[in-house]
Every structure is written in structure tokens, then in C-alpha cells.
Design a protein around this nucleic acid. Sequence first.
RNA 1: GUGGGAAUAGCUCAACUGGCAGAGCACCGGACUGUGGCUCCGACGGUUGCGGGUUCGAUUCCCGUUUCCCACCCCA
Length: 428
Amino acid sequence: MIKAVRGTRDLLPPETALWNFVESAVRDVFRAYNFQEIRTPIFEETALFSRSVGEETDIVGKEMYTWQDRGRAESDRGQSLTLRPENTAGVVRAYIEHKLWDRGLNKLYYIGPQFRRERPQKGRYRQFYQIGAEVLGPPSAGSESPARDAELLEMLATLLDRLGITGWNLELNSVGCPNDRAKFNEALRKALEPVVGKMCADCQRRALSNPLRVFDCKVPEDQPIIENLPRISRFLDEPCRAHFEAVQAILRTVGVPFTLNDRLVRGLDYYTRTAFEFTHGALGAQNAILGGGRYDGLSEALGGPAAPGIGFAIGEDRLVLSLQESASAEAVVRRPDVYVAPLGARMNPDAARLARELRRHDLVVELGDETFRLKKSFEAATKAGAKYILIVGENEVKADAFALKNLETGEQISIVRSELAGKIQAGR
RNA sequence: GUGGGAAUAGCUCAACUGGCAGAGCACCGGACUGUGGCUCCGACGGUUGCGGGUUCGAUUCCCGUUUCCCACCCCA
């Protein structure tokens, strides 16, 4: 038997209703902030990701689905292509390619699948779904303003509240500009040198490859050492510090709670200044449901104009998971309003016409099987969760008055065709 | 990529030291031929993930493999 490949899965009803619930809430909320949707290809030139995400990151180094495309002629070597491991690079590429700044498009969101060749776990798949948004534009358009950061964070808080997710925590940090990072990295290396020998094996490796990641260490014995390491906050230059302060001031005023976490670092190379994560306790080790930050130099790194920006990505798989575990997932499934039960094949035309009329009144209609005996139709209607059953038999068609029974109350009436839709809508 | 656990009916799970593969729920039918939910009865349902080995005999023990889960790595 052929099965879905490792790390991929089918999303089945009724779970798909929950995904739709999430996505329509996202579209509603983002629209209120005047974001517009962008859809970029799910594969791109490999160079796009290695330049933006960073050659040294795990994503580029070992987690990408990359292949050599065929050229035009049999003998040609094609380009190296890669399934997108994240969507910010694609959005920025499109921004540059279509000169979106000239069209005033500076607030974009996306919803779609991404691909990373990781070891699968719960809430972590090789084809996974991200919801993200990006604010970017020329500096003259205010894209560097802390107001953009704060607005984006406030939008996310609104979204999580709207989804009924309680107990989220916003963790906030600033990773400064490249200059600050360089100075900080140097200080960090110096501080680590005398103590690294006492740390865990992972930290010893990190200290060499990517010292920032030492802050992710969860080994208890290492914590006192980590506590004493220099923090990025002390290395922010004046503009970065002021920017960070301003973001916080706005959040306090609009009433979005947050906690400062100067150990929060971002894995991708393109991040600058504001870095953030929303975490949720119920998710265990995979406790981050979304993360993001500012990437002021990304456009230029990809050969575009200066276009400071900030964005985030929500792990939709995990978001849905936390929704399933906390909220009432059942509630979002729309069940049939009415089950139309034709009694015998000769009733099919009349049943079909009635179903069509009812559906035109925005009712959810399940058209039953004409081979069912009435008892079985009732069972089928109940199982489908229909509110009403409408019986279409010879007597009803002759009289043009139909038996309509409320399956929840047991009340049954005879009702003429013209009043059917109104009656069912009223009882919905 | 590393380490550990698991895999038995559609779902949730049993099956002693190796001895006839089972239950509940679901599904289908009947009791009840134009009135559901409850109840009762019956039927259906299996390459025990896959491949090999040991054995008279393997769901059980061994090896390999695949997938999932957990912890790493890393990240959303």
C-alpha cells in the first residue's frame, strides 16, 4: 500500500474545519490592519534561500529539499531549485522583482505549505504550514519605525485572543544591528573562552560554531555560567536602544503584555533589532507557536533597494494542535440544517428541486438516498447531525405540503413549499 | 542526523514463561415495510507494519527495515 511519505500527512474532516476556522480568523484580523495576501511559488532558486536564510544555518545546511532541474536541451544542466523552507525570502524576492514599493504594497501576508527535511515529531512535519505577514518598504515610508513593530505585535495579540487562545506569552528582545551583533559576538566568545570547558558538549560545539545559541542551553548545570555571560542589551547602539524602547512604550500604552527575554536569539541570519516569540505552555518542548523579527538588511542582501522590514511566521500545525487541546473544536463544524429524504426513486426529481431551493437560501442541505426506508433516513439524518428532516413522499408532492420534523425537539409539522426555507432558517 | 519507545480490526486497546488472534466503540442488517436517538439480537471486519531468522509451532524471541511517538540537534 502506498502511504503518505514520512513527515507528511492528510488533513481530514472534521479537522479541516478547524483549519478553515483559523484561516478565516487570520484573514479577518489581518484585513483590519490592511494587510493583503501574496502567494509565492512553493519552489524557488536555491540561491534565494542560501543568501537570505544564511549558508551556515541548519535550514540551508541540512534541511532543504533541493534538486537539480533539467535544462532546455537534454544535455543542459538546469538550475538548482529548492522547496521553500520558509516564506519571507520569497516575499522579499517578489517585492524586489515586481518593485512593489512603486505600487504602495508594503503590508503582505501569506498562508501556505513550507518544507524542511527534519525528523518528524508531533506538531512538526516535513510539509508544514505557516501563516506569516511582512511589513517592508523604503525607509522614507516609515518602514523602520518602531510603530510598525508594535502594530504587528498588537495584531498578533488580537489574533490569538480572537482564536480563543489563552495563556500566551510574548517574549521580546532586540538583537541590534549587524555592528552590535559583531561586538557582542566578540565579547561573548571572550567570555566563553575561560568557562566553556566546564559546559556541556553541545555548548562547547555551539561556542565555536554559533555562540548565540549557547543561550538556548537547557542543561541545569550550565545555567549559572550562562547567567554571567554578556547580554546583547548592553551592546545596542543608541539608535537600536531607542528603537527598542519605543516599541515597548507603544505596547504598554496599547495594553499588550510582554516579557523581556534577552536570551531570545533568532536562528536566521537576516534578523536585526526586534526579535520576538509567542509561546504557549500547553505545547511542551515545542512551545513556540510563532516567531519573528525585524530584517532591515534582507532586501539589500538579495540585490534590492533598502527596504527595512519586520515579519513573523506562525506554525499553523502547532496552532491548530493547541486549539484542539484547549478549545471546543467541534463547535466550528457546520452541520446540515436539513436532511431531505426522498421516499423512492420517483421522488428524486422533487427532492432535488427542494434541495436546490433550500440551498439557494444559504441552508446546508444533505440530500438523502432514495433507497432508504424512512426509518433508515431518520437514522442517517440523525447521524449527520441535521437539525431538520424533510420527508418527500407521494402524499407530500401531491399536496405540495411536506412533512418537516425538528430532530432535536421532535416537533413535526406539515408545511407548504413556499414557507419551507423561512421555517428552517428561523429554527436554525 | 543522534539516542530511546511503539506498531494487533475503521478507532481505542487486550492476548501469562512461545500454544486456536479477542473486547468495547464504530460500520452493516434485523426486532420495527411512512418516524430517529434508547434497548436487544445478529453479521461483517486481520498478510498482528514489512522482510528474514530461531522453533514442531512466533502477535510473543532475534536481526534488518519502514513509519509514528518522545528526547536531542534545530526551529514556527
